[in-house]
């Protein structure tokens, strides 16, 4: 026991995180300042293998109800003669991975999806009571004790990222594992992505590698025409992705 704790103290960021996890701290880490972060995520399409690890991890970390998804993976199949009408599948959100294919004549790729934590989010705009909102550190979250369950936000999200929790009867969605990122950990999906296709990023942290990445890569957000200020950035996003 002692030995383990001593080692942990050597890893400052992890140590803070770990201590508060062990202590069951009821609030975010004392060193965490809302105004110092602006969370986003980077998804590298070229690295995603469609294993479904992120979906499984998310489901377990967040007790996501069956049949609903805080994150999911889609497999696109694009034929060069019909670039704008891809065939897309996402069996059970890709939680068990995807069927193998041997078809090498067409283009295939995987697109992990999650809440885009939009800076101008249409979902928080329509909430009649202020039960869903953008936190000062850029996470779109739901106040489960305040939500009416009217589902207007679900209608307003262009990306299909929200659902009504069948037991709690309130809106539910990805909150970027807020209980983890405020403790210095990464999200469950990023932690468990074997290829590093998903990276949590803090746009307010000048040392975050995302700045370099955004400068040097061809990066896009989903449905840019929606002008939602989406903060999930996709590297090498194909034009056929909806």
């Amino acid at each position: 026991m002692m030995n383990r704790r001593q080692i942990l103290i050597l890893l400052p960021a992890a140590a803070i995180a770990w201590k508060s996890v062990l202590a069951g701290t009821p609030e975010m880490s004392p060193n965490y300042k809302l105004s110092e972060h602006w969370w986003s995520m980077l998804i590298d399409i070229t690295k995603c293998i469609g294993c479904g690890n992120c979906v499984r991890a998310c489901s377990q970390e967040n007790n996501v109800p069956d049949g609903h998804f805080r994150t999911w993976v889609e497999r696109y199949h694009v034929n060069d003669e019909n670039m704008t009408e891809p065939v897309v599948i996402s069996p059970e959100g890709g939680i068990h991975g995807f069927p193998a294919t041997t078809d090498t004549s067409d283009k295939y790729f995987f697109v992990p999806k999650l809440c885009n934590h939009c800076a101008d989010s249409p979902c928080t705009q329509v909430c009649p009571v202020g039960a869903t909102f953008i936190s000062p550190d850029g996470v779109v979250m739901v106040d489960r004790t305040y939500c009416l369950g009217c589902a207007y936000c679900v209608q307003a999200c262009p990306y299909g990222c929200r659902y009504i929790h069948p037991e709690l009867e309130v809106a539910d969605k990805c909150d970027l594992c807020y209980h983890r990122i405020t403790q210095g950990l990464t999200t469950a999906c990023c932690e468990n992505c074997p290829t590093g296709a998903r990276q949590l990023a803090d746009l307010k942290d000048p040392k975050d590698p995302i700045h370099e990445f955004l400068r040097t890569h061809s990066v896009q957000v989903l449905k840019p025409q929606m002008a939602t200020g989406a903060k999930v950035f996709y590297n090498e996003l194909d034009g056929s992705v909806h």
């Binding site: 049949g67 609903h68 998804f69 999911w72 889609e74 065939v87 897309v88 599948i89 996402s90 059970e92 959100g93 999806k113 589902a151 679900v154 209608q155 990306y159 299909g160 990222c161 929200r162 659902y163 009504i164």
Partner: peptide, 11 residues
């Protein structure tokens, strides 16, 4: 294809 959260109607 429906986004997986879209299959059931909300309203």
């Amino acid at each position: 294809f429906m986004y997986p959260n879209e299959i059931g109607l909300q309203w």
